[in-house]
């Protein structure tokens, strides 16, 4: 109880500092459990009464998380989603706007590929949102610490693994920066818990854990395909039957998106300056040729080589 009061007071203080007098941040009920949630109260979408999660970033991941947040009891405000979403196609409780919403309980930034765009989004969110609103940002291709260095409210940024298609996993990898105070970490924990997820706290390094391993598996499969050692479908079959992988690495690339895979690998190569993270040229060419890996693209690229 004491802790809650302290949190509220400190938020009030911070609100005052930046002159957001109208907002009176307070603890709100979680959408799911009804327990006290350390998320500040947002202005809900008209007449809903639910907390709002603002989501920006690449469309696939943004829509995936939007759906998870809605299931978790949030209203979602999409902003700066690329490629843009058609408002008329959005389900109930998800809205899209062209300016960053001023009021939200939490912000999710899910850009992995376009790092210039990511920086703009983070800077915009920092300017637009009250200073006590946490920005939870995918830190697979730029470390959370680097992202925090772009903004004045560096205390509010927490990194996490926002790789497309992994949003529904039971566990989420969360990486605080050196600036992240315990309070912001608590917000991140409570938020992910309200989505039904367990938080695995890891160190802030590009690629984090699962994305680094999976993208390197895909890279090795792409090198193997490029070396023409086997047919693409046989590479996938071998990994599923030989070592029980949940997906063949090439079809996994298809699910995640080759552009995301290349972005993670390129970030690892930038970070470590090591040859081992060199992206297979075939993979890079596929990413440049089109956003998504298609089996037909793989086949045409290896045509006539057998």
């Amino acid at each position: 109880m004491k802790a809650s009061t302290r949190t509220t007071n400190s938020r009030k203080r911070k609100s005052k500092e930046v002159g957001t007098k109208k907002r009176t941040p307070a603890l709100v009920r979680t959408p799911t459990s009804g327990r006290d949630l350390a998320l500040p109260k947002s202005e809900p979408l008209p007449s809903s009464g639910r907390p709002v999660a603002v989501i920006s970033g690449e469309r696939g991941t943004a829509l995936e998380y939007a759906s998870i947040c809605v299931t978790g009891g949030y209203d979602v405000a999409l902003w700066s989603v690329h490629p843009p979403v058609e408002k008329k196609d959005l389900p109930e409780r998800i809205t899209a706007s062209t300016i960053p919403p001023r009021s939200a309980s939490v912000a999710l930034e899910l850009t992995n590929v376009d790092q210039g765009g990511k920086r703009k989004n983070i800077e915009h969110l920092d300017r637009a949102l009250a200073p006590d609103i946490a920005i939870l940002s995918s830190s697979l291709t730029v470390s959370a610490s680097e992202q925090a260095s772009w903004i004045t409210g560096r205390h509010r940024l927490v990194g996490f693994a926002g790789l497309p298609t992994f949003g529904n996993a039971q566990v989420v990898e969360v990486a605080p920066t050196v600036h992240t105070p315990r309070q912001t970490m608590q917000v991140a924990r409570v938020f992910f818990r309200s989505l039904g997820k367990d938080v695995e706290l890891v160190q802030d390094r590009v690629g984090l854990v699962s994305a680094r391993i999976i993208c390197q598996l895909i890279n090795e499969a792409a090198f193997a395909l490029q070396d023409d050692i086997a047919l693409p479908e046989d590479i996938d079959t071998a990994m599923k039957l030989g070592v029980s992988y949940p997906h063949g690495p090439l079809e996994w690339a298809d699910r995640i998106g080759v552009d995301n895979v290349v972005a993670v690998l390129s970030a690892l190569q930038r970070e470590y300056q090591e040859e081992r993270y060199r992206v297979a040229p075939l993979l890079r060419n596929l990413a440049l040729g089109g956003t998504w890996w298609r089996r037909s693209a793989v086949e045409s690229s290896t045509e006539g080589q057998s």
Partner: peptide, 29 residues
């Protein structure tokens, strides 16, 4: 599969262990 080191499975599976060891070695997790 062509006669190349590790064939498919032992080759493509290497990063599963190699990256995990590096992640642990750097104390990321």
């Amino acid at each position: 599969v062509k006669d190349t080191p590790g064939f498919i499975v032992n080759r493509v599976a290497r990063p599963f262990y190699g990256e995990a060891l590096r992640i642990a070695g750097e104390n990321i997790a």
